[in-house]
């Protein structure tokens, strides 16, 4: 197990290298010019050229890539072309809101979706099952930003229960932190809840038709015990897999959610950097997201051994 974990961690190095090369190449060939954005609408072409030269953007691809890789190997992600701040500083400024949003969303989604999926499977074919699956379809179909606007309108503007926008650090208190994240987490969690609920239902239905469940019933086991001890534990592997895959969904959804609720997170940082072609920031954030995704997948693989003792690495 330890050797496997070490191997997997080491395997992230070539993955990250490929991601780095891919991202750098993509940005190199993509249209856009940070010098033109910096110079502003009133600048002349000559001004733009001189700014481009001062930023070193006129140098060849290999020189720029080599410098960037060299710096990355030293743990230096570079400096934002626009703000002059180190990329690591900008990421540090933004990581807490995104992490908070994602953790809260995962907690909310798992705590809502799994019971709903189990309930739907248990009550298969009933109105409850249809209602849960109907909500799941709705969760998949309605875009995050629409859910966000509707929630903000009802709970912030009309009822005045929660703030419209913004983020407060947890260091300023638990409730101020939570009240800013409730609506975004619900908005972002919609698709995630739908996904996990459907997978939970499908897997539970399969497990509930197994012989050992029938045996458990025959032995007089209670419904709760059958559902949560016998069935759910055996259905856990696919559910955990989906939870892990869903992290990618969350990263994508966080970009939109952070914009709608003006949360200063990594998603917003990424969009801002892309729109103004702040290459070092884009590269840094994409590398970070890739790293997180690789780690999440590793964690999921390791979790399999907890739920299914037959799995050994």
């Amino acid at each position: 197990m330890f050797a496997y974990t070490v191997r997997r961690v080491l395997a992230t190095i070539p993955v990250m290298a490929i991601v780095a090369l891919f991202v750098f190449s993509l940005l190199y060939i993509a249209p856009g010019d940070p010098a033109a954005v910096i110079a502003g609408d009133q600048a002349t072409p000559d001004d733009v050229e001189r700014i481009r030269a001062s930023l070193g953007l006129d140098r060849p691809f290999l020189v720029r890539f080599g410098e960037w890789v060299f710096r990355i190997l030293q743990g230096d992600m570079g400096v934002s072309i626009f703000t002059n701040l180190p990329v690591t500083t900008m990421i540090q400024q933004r990581i807490e809101p995104t992490l908070s949003l994602m953790v809260l969303t995962v907690c909310l989604a798992v705590s809502v979706a799994i019971p709903l999926g189990v309930l739907a499977a248990w009550k298969q074919g009933t109105i409850i099952d249809r209602a849960v699956m109907g909500m799941a379809v709705l969760g998949f179909s309605v875009p995050v930003f629409v859910v966000g606007y509707v929630l903000a309108y009802i709970f912030a503007l009309e009822l005045d229960w929660l703030p419209v926008q913004g983020y407060t650090s947890m260091t300023e208190g638990f409730w101020p932190w939570l009240e800013n994240l409730i609506l975004p987490a619900i908005a972002l969690g919609g698709v995630y809840i739908a996904l996990i609920a459907r997978i939970t239902r499908a897997t539970m239905l399969e497990v509930l038709s197994q012989d050992y469940i029938r045996t458990a019933r025959a032995k007089g086991a209670g419904q709760r015990s059958i559902l949560f001890l016998h069935a759910l534990k055996n259905a856990a592997v696919p559910i955990v897999t989906v939870v892990g895959i869903g992290v990618a969904l969350l990263i994508g959804g966080a970009v939109v959610t952070e914009s709608v609720f003006a949360i200063p997170g990594l998603g917003r940082l990424t969009v801002d950097a892309i729109l103004r072609r702040d290459y070092p920031v884009i590269q840094g954030v994409v590398l970070l997201f890739s790293f997180v995704y690789v780690l999440v997948n590793l964690a999921i693989d390791l979790l399999y051994t907890l739920f299914d003792p037959r799995i050994r690495y």
């Binding site: 606007y149 903000a152 912030a156 703030p163 913004g166 914009s259 609720f261 003006a262």
Partner: peptide
């Protein structure tokens, strides 16, 4: 200066007094 890129959110924020 609160940077709110979404116009609808900014409008809602001024309506709510935020």
């Amino acid at each position: 200066w609160h940077i709110i890129v979404d116009a609808a959110t900014a409008a809602a924020a001024v309506q709510a007094g935020e």
